[in-house]
Each structure stands twice: as structure tokens, then as C-alpha cells.
Simulated scan of single mutants.
Amino acid sequence: MAAEHGMLEQAAHQAAELARALAPETERSRALAPALVAQLKDTGLLRAALPSQLGGPGAEPAEVLATAETVAGGDASAGWCVSINATSSLLAGYLPEPGAAEVFGDPRSVACGVWAPQGVARAVSGGVVVSGRWSFCSGITHSDWMFGGATVHTGAGPDVARVLAMPVSELTVLDTWDTGGLRGTGSHDAVADELFVPSRRLLSVLDGPPPDASACYRFPIFGFFALSIAAAALGNARGAIGELVELAGQRRSLGSSRTLAERSTTQEAVAAAEAALRAARLLVYSSVAQAWRAAAEPEPVPDALRAGLRLAATHATRTAAEVTRAMYDLGGGAAIYADSPLQRRFRDAHTATAHFQVNATSYQVLGRLLLGLSTRTEQL
């Protein structure tokens, strides 16, 4: 695993450099640049959580998150897609073995996912027939499969929530992703119309993985999903600090002989931002480490640790946005132009905070738990 980790880390740094160079192309195209997609597929970063028996690296949660964070340091859209695709590869552990082999058997096969039940399906012989429209399908422009949530009408009992693995080639992708930030994620809508999905490609994220699943698949999956957003946000904020430091060494205000870096207000703001970002990142990875140790035990991961993951994810994403805004403000007039990396970082950061997993409302369920109120915790 150590060698595998070193390979993933090296691949992430290389991808970050390419992502930074291609960021303008990614932004214009509203999809990751083809050369970047090819590199990400070649190195397996888009399948980082896939188990080794299916040809993946089977990386631990902290490793998956760290690679996405590193790539986001080059470009937030790239890091976001690495997060989403890698998290989707984790679902191989929830699929029946024949379905997992079908979806991920090709070593370059990549999946994205929207697990919310935005589709409606009916049970038929050998599977289900589904129709629906899923929004925010990040990475679908370079993905081969999409995991879409649906409510399944069984006809013989209560409806059940399932996630369906569907070929992107059998979906209609609608060009809806024209946003202020994270433009390169290609998070368009996808539509299924009376699509048959065999039972081998159905799973439940609520019921959890098989009883004999390894620790990676007993790690809280909803916490993993929320943390994948936080990882991209942390990397973006780290990139923003780097962009500001580079700018500050060169830029002088009108009528001033001092560079931006030589001004005391800049020094104070950068130091405060650095401290905030380090603290938020430490909370994320310490929470992951605690939950990972618990996932190795036979009992389910306790609610307190699950809540800790979600608390860390929301805090980190929102702190990262504050850090990025501070760097954007320090950039002054140089940051307002469309070709300014700081301007893109600012837009990306404040698009990330809108995600339902890490928006301000996500604190409510965590606050209820902290206050000792009765709270549903199945999606922590």
C-alpha cells in the first residue's frame, strides 16, 4: 500500500501541474480538457477507491481525499471531478460482483454519480425500468457510467430507494451547466427514459455494503461524499494562497514603492488565512483517521464519529471559501479580470459552498445531535 500511495501522490502532483496549465481551456469548454482526462484515466486517479481485485488501487479514504485535494491545488474543477469520480468508484463494494465487474472491468472505465432519488423505477423481471432526470452530474462529460438514485416501486411491498448504475451512452445529457464557478466540472443534467437496468447493477447506500466488506467500504459513505467536496475546496484555497503570494511579490499599488507582499496588512491577512486553512485541514484528516480506526472494528462506526466527519466537511468547505475570498480581496484590481486565477478561485470556492452536503443548512442536523435532540442519522 505504501508504494501504491506513493504512486498516487506522484500522479496527483503531476495532474495538478497539468490541470493548472489547462485551467483556461477547462473553463472555456465547461469540461475537463481532454489531455487532462487522459492523464487522470491513465494514472487511475478517477478510480482511486476501486478495490484491487477489480484492478483499482483500493486507496484508503485519507489517500483518496489527499489526491483530490492536491489536484484541486492546480484547478478546483479538476480536483472536484477526481473527488466525485473516485467516490463513485467506492460503490463497486456495494454492487453485486457481476455488476461491479461490468461497470469497472475496463481499466479506463470511470463513473460519476448523483445518489439522490431523482428517478422513478418499477420492478420488472431481471431488474427495473427507470425514468428520471438527475441534476449536478459532475464529471459526466468524461464518465462511462452514472450512478443515479431512484425510488423503486416493487408492486409487492413498500417502495425502496436504490442507486442504479447506468451507461452514460444510454442517457441523454442536457447542456445545463453554465455557472459562475466550477465551470470545468461539466455538471450537466442527465435523463433516462424507460431504461432497463438489470438487478446486478442495483445497490443501496442506505442498507450499506455486504456484511463481509472491508474497512474501506464500512467507512461512512455519506461522510466520505461530503469530505470529497471539502477536499476540493481545501485544495482550491491552497491554490488561492499560492496565487496571491506570487502576485504579491510583483504587484505595487499606484504611487507606492512597496510590493503587496511588503505591506503589513497583507502579511497579517496571509498569516491568518494560512492558520485557518491549516486548522480546517487538520480537523478533516483527524476526523477521517478516527473514523477509519473505527471502521476496522466489527461494530458500525458510531454516530458521534459520523457526525464528526460531516462537521469537518462543512467547516472545511466554508473556511476554504473565506480564505479564498481573503486572497481575492488582497489581489485588488488585478484579481477582477476574467483571466485572473484568483478570480476563478473565488468563483469556484463560492460555488462549492452551495453543495447540499456542505451548505449552511447542513449544520442543522449536527447541531441537533450536539444539543441532544432526537435526530435521524442514517445519512451521516
Rank of each mutant, 00 (worst) to 15 (best):
P51E: 14
Q53T: 10
L54Q: 12
G55Q: 08
G55P: 13
G55N: 13
G56A: 13
G56P: 00
P57H: 11
G58H: 00
A59F: 07
P61S: 06
P61V: 09
A62G: 13
L65T: 07
E69L: 14
T70G: 06
T70F: 13
T70L: 12
T70I: 14
G73M: 01
G74H: 11
G74A: 08
D75G: 01
A76I: 09
A76V: 14
S77G: 11
S77T: 08
A78H: 00
A78N: 07
G79L: 10
W80I: 05
C81Q: 12
V82D: 10
V82C: 09
S83I: 07
S89Y: 05
L90I: 00
L90M: 12
L91Y: 13
A92H: 05
A92N: 09
L95E: 04
P96K: 13
E97V: 15
E102F: 02
E102G: 00
G105F: 10
G105M: 04
D106I: 00
D106P: 10
P107T: 00
P107A: 04
R108H: 14
C112P: 02
C112K: 09
G113D: 05
G113Q: 02
G113V: 09
V114C: 04
W115N: 13
P117K: 08
V120I: 13
V120S: 12
A121G: 03
A121C: 03
A123G: 01
S125I: 01
G126C: 08
G127E: 03
V128E: 00
V128P: 04
V129I: 15
V130I: 03
V130H: 01
S131V: 08
S131G: 03
G132E: 06
R133F: 00
S135Y: 07
F136I: 14
F136E: 10
F136N: 15
G139A: 02
G139C: 06
G139H: 10
T141S: 13
S143R: 11
S143E: 01
M146A: 15
M146V: 14
M146P: 06
G148R: 00
G148F: 05
G149C: 09
G149H: 04
V152F: 00
V152I: 12
H153W: 02
T154L: 14
A156Y: 03
G157D: 11
G157C: 12
D159H: 09
A161H: 14
R162P: 05
R162F: 01
R162L: 11
V163Q: 07
V163R: 03
V163G: 01
A165S: 06
A165D: 03
M166H: 05
V168W: 07
V168P: 10
S169H: 07
